[in-house]
Design a protein around this nucleic acid. Structure first.
Lengths: 224, 224
DNA sequence: TGAAGAACTGAACACCTATTCAGAGCTGAT
DNA sequence: ATCAGCTCTGAATAGGTGTTCAGTTCTTCA
């Protein structure tokens, strides 16, 4: 053969793949999953429609990978926040707050990843995504239970319910639409976090303290 | 004119309309919203595809009305259960339990109504449906707050979060799949109801009592 | 520089189901 | 019985987007 992939080419291919994924992510963040269509994404990524298929076997694969990528980022953020907390209860509060804040600052994307109708089948990757996040939350609940801060319970179910509560109340169709009032956004995060902590059995007074601690640390609500 | 609609014809038309809706409901209960396609629904209802369009301007209208119908039924059931309870807290517990039980006994239908991707736009009716149910739950929370059983709170947000928790944990993709183990179903209902009540501030011990009361009354989980 | 192989292009295609509509079948008054 | 008007039929159509692929461009190496 008189052609072999050179390091430079490999890098360019990887870059292009990233560009396509990034274009998809941009599209989703701007207009939800509905906006993730092959032709527009290709244009955003400066390639032709057919090229997308050299990197992703199908639209379903593209979106699945998008979901996986966003989930990875989210999971990392949750872990970072929780690990930085002083104790199991604070860690749980921090984890919940992180999810709430992220979801609120990227509502369209979150809605797209979580629940928006898509014309291709992405149930598998959505399932995996939820499993990861719910698993992490469940682990944090479990730690708090083991520390004696919470009553024994079905932590997996609790984690799932908790995420459902967050999502529905913050990005669901009934979510109050305070897109730009940063104060109200903060209120919503606090309220929902409080609700979530009480649900798993944190005493009300203590829960309030944890929520304030978790929300305060200068976290900005806009810009991820 | 030499033709005027006779009472008999009016009745037949109404019956046909109902038959189409019922066929749609059957299809949704059996295979989710994906199974609600014009041709199959028409066959189930013993009419031709074109006939469906004499009763519903579009598929979106058909599904919207299906959603509205199911919601009406659900709302009525919630009210009945709550009104039969001895006090505001019990009423809230009964309302939550009712939702949980119904959702579990008709999982595919519930998923279709609530969240399943549909190729036509039914956001408006889904929104209305949620508003109705959430409004009812909010009212019940409010009553309990006024009775001094719960701390003051944003009841609308709480109701939304609460429904999100129920839905996600009982019909969401992470929901445990105990389709036929009636004992486990009951456990799930209890656990989630407990979680929901604690979330709005019911004290743990009291919550357990309320849940047992609300779940016990010989409610069967299968067959709506 | 030229040849071989890889990557890219984008117009054409495929597919799928909602929707239409011309004609057939009914219904009710005269 | 007859006919106007309503209702039903179901095959044909429409529309939109994911996917393909023959041709073009680019990259590597002898």
């Amino acid at each position: 053969m008189v052609y072999r992939r050179t390091h430079q080419v490999v890098k360019r291919l990887a870059a292009r793949r990233s560009a396509i994924l990034a274009a998809a992510r941009d599209a989703a963040a701007a207009g939800g999953m509905a906006a993730v269509q092959i032709a527009p994404v290709a244009i955003r990524a400066n390639v032709a429609a057919g090229t997308v298929y050299r990197y992703f076997p199908s639209k379903a694969d593209l979106i699945s990978e998008l979901i996986a990528e966003v989930s990875r980022d989210e999971l990392a953020a949750i872990r970072r926040a929780a690990d930085a907390a002083p104790g199991p209860s604070s860690a749980l509060a921090a984890a919940v707050t992180t999810v709430a804040v992220h979801v609120l600052s990227q509502r369209k994307l979150a809605w797209g990843i979580l629940a928006e109708p898509v014309d291709v089948d992405v149930t598998a990757s959505r399932l995996a995504s939820r499993r990861e996040i719910a698993g992490e939350i469940a682990a944090r609940i479990d730690a708090a239970v083991r520390a004696g801060h919470l009553p024994a319970q079905d932590t997996a179910l609790a984690a799932t319910a908790l995420l459902g509560a967050l999502h529905e109340s913050l990005v669901g169709p009934l979510a109050p639409d305070n897109t730009d009032d940063s104060g109200k956004l903060r209120d919503a995060v606090q309220t929902v976090t409080l609700l979530a902590l009480r649900a798993v059995g944190v005493m009300d007074a203590r829960a309030r303290g944890l929520v304030v601690q978790a929300v305060l640390p200068g976290r900005t609500l806009v810009g991820a």
